[in-house]
Nucleic acid binder design. Sequence first.
DNA 1: GGGGGCTATGGGGGG
DNA 2: CATAGCCCCC
Length: 756
Amino acid sequence: MTLDYLNGLNPVQYAAVTTIEGPVMVIAGPGSGKTRVLTFRIAYLIDSKIPPYKILALTFTNKAAKEMKERISSVVGEKGNQVWAGTFHSIFARILRIESEKIGFPSNFTIYDSDDTKNLINSLIKESGLDTNVYNANSVKNRISQAKSNLITPKAYADNPDIQAKDRMNAMPQTGMLYAKYVARCQRAGAMDFDDLLYQTFRLFHQNPDNVLEKYQQKFSHVLVDEFQDTNFLQYAIIKKLCMYEGSPRNICIVGDDAQSIYAFRGATIENILDFERDFNGLQTFKLEQNYRSTPHIVQAANDVITYNKRQIKKEIWTEKPKGEPIRLIKAITDSEEGKRIADSILELKHRYHLSNSEIAILYRTNAQSRIFEEFLRKYNLSYRVFGGLSFYQRKEVKDLLAYLRLTANKRDDEALRRIINYPRRGVGNTSLEKITTWANAYDISLWEATLVFAANSKGKGGLEAFVTMINSFSAKMQTLNVFDLAVYIANKTGIVQDLKGDNTQDGLNRLENIQALLDSIKEFSENDELIDEATMPDKSLQSYLQNIALISDMDQTDKNPDYITLMSVHAAKGLEFRAVFVVGLEENLFPSFQSSETIENIDEERRLFYVAITRAQEFLSLSFAKSRYRYGQIRYNEPSRFLQEIDAQRLDMPAVEAIPNFMGQQRSGVSGLLNKKPIIVAPSFKNTEILNFKASPSSQIMQGMNVLHLRFGKGTVVNIDGNNDSKVATIKFDATGDEEKRIMLKFAKLQILES
DNA sequence: GGGGGCTATGGGGGG
DNA sequence: CATAGCCCCC
């Protein structure tokens, strides 16, 4: 066989690719060709007659998975598609889709996203009569997530004195009870949250009904794990289930870099690497230290910085690249000036070195920092794209339409039902929903089943009945229509499109565009045959679509115009590289983040994050800081980041001692205290002497065509009156508001009838 | 039904 | 400061 692709590898890479039997650990420094090693290793496995469908490759991000798949296929062709390559979550979601009935979940289970989880926890807090000021949904959610990630069941949670003590200390002793309720409610809804995709997979393998574990142990003869330093206890536990058993070939290869571990805050643990050495004896380790990405200044700066971390696997990256430019230090007085100077530098780099926008990135510690850079890039007419922030799939209108699809696919999906039972409006108010919720809880049935009861007994109104009939008709259509046609049908039939068309504001137009964009992407899904992939997207069903959507993020969206400057957080930049990188906001309390300053472990994680940031640069690296910065509405003064001083001065274009002393000693970090809240000016919105004589007329006397006076809007004419009794609504055209008509509920409105 | 005002909150974030 | 969620009021 001709294995040309092996020729370009250095000796360590070659060994890491071709050592395909037994446990292997690859420690891969930044820019050391990690992805090449991973993909060539898989190609080499396939060339060594390992059936591609017996190879399991786990990554953290869709981006990494996608890149890996593409590169495997480019080396081995078609059969590369049969490799089970994907994120932990997507691979295990796929397995659960096949096996979930064995552990009490329907095969069409819903995946709850973070918002669903949070909403559900919030309802549970309220239902349980707990104080929402004390029980914060986010912290409860984090506790539950932590518990699942450490394989602690609700019962174990309740029985564990340490956990109980901690919850008591945080004044939230009922957290364990909420955890138990949450789990029960997810079960009732036939729903799994993101953690469940891993937790339930572990449960499945651990309980092992019908020897399902052996099935997958046999299925996957070779397992690869990317970014192993970011795995948590649960992920490693699943990996062990698959690879560590009597008679296992133990063909497992983990790739990672302890220096780039930046997710400890969410449970990733370096212990896993240490445990791995212990769990898999006979382990062969390869260290990739040659860097093919960056100039010596950049590589050395990275080495300088990381030596300040005590606990790490010994490793020094090096490069053969030519010297290149020193690292630029940019100091600014204000955050706004920082924005301007970065934009200036970008223009200069573009002119001097003919960089395209896509070769440039601005990396920051917090997403909130993006705004100022956007402002200046827009001013300079440079195209850019901000990653992170509110993703497309988190927008209200998108979630609304998706909720209809979700409920159609799984009627027990409580969170979807809650979202749309009265959108668009069909006269199902809070009172009805509360009745339904109480009923559902009393009989331990889903909201949908409870809704059926109320719809059948409802008198007159018919909103609920219409809702039930509509959803049922969607389910029927699901049998005959493809996903796209179904989605279009639903968007129209529910009145969502009509509702948005009625809103002529820019906001409304954007929303309508988003609905259109969602429909376009559904069309893409339903018509593009290349997307079929047994491991992650096995068919074109509604369920398959929803699963795919739930596990995708904003980061994965590709743009039609690829020539933009990239703005993203350092976390998001992991795995990427750019010719020019600006790492901004290098100030104490920002980078490193102020919440991390308490412990050495936290500062070390911030330092690894900085290490990740600077090693994204190929040729041009700029580091900037501002003396003062607006944060939470106040000007704050911070000293330059300690990390700047950890870089040997000879790598910098100006000595740090020259740049930094101006800012040392003089200013203390803290709040300026000068800025006070703006005075609140109350101005009358309507001036008219007639108001002095205002006297409201009884609402029953108000009729169509009358001239009326309103305290805020002034004079107007009643165009129309609809509804009856208490819910009469008047449509009134006021002189002051131009063409825009107001709809006012007569029950509340204070209107005076005027002589015409 | 819907707008306005008040209040709480604000770290990094994949799936 | 910016935003989201909530309550109140018309």
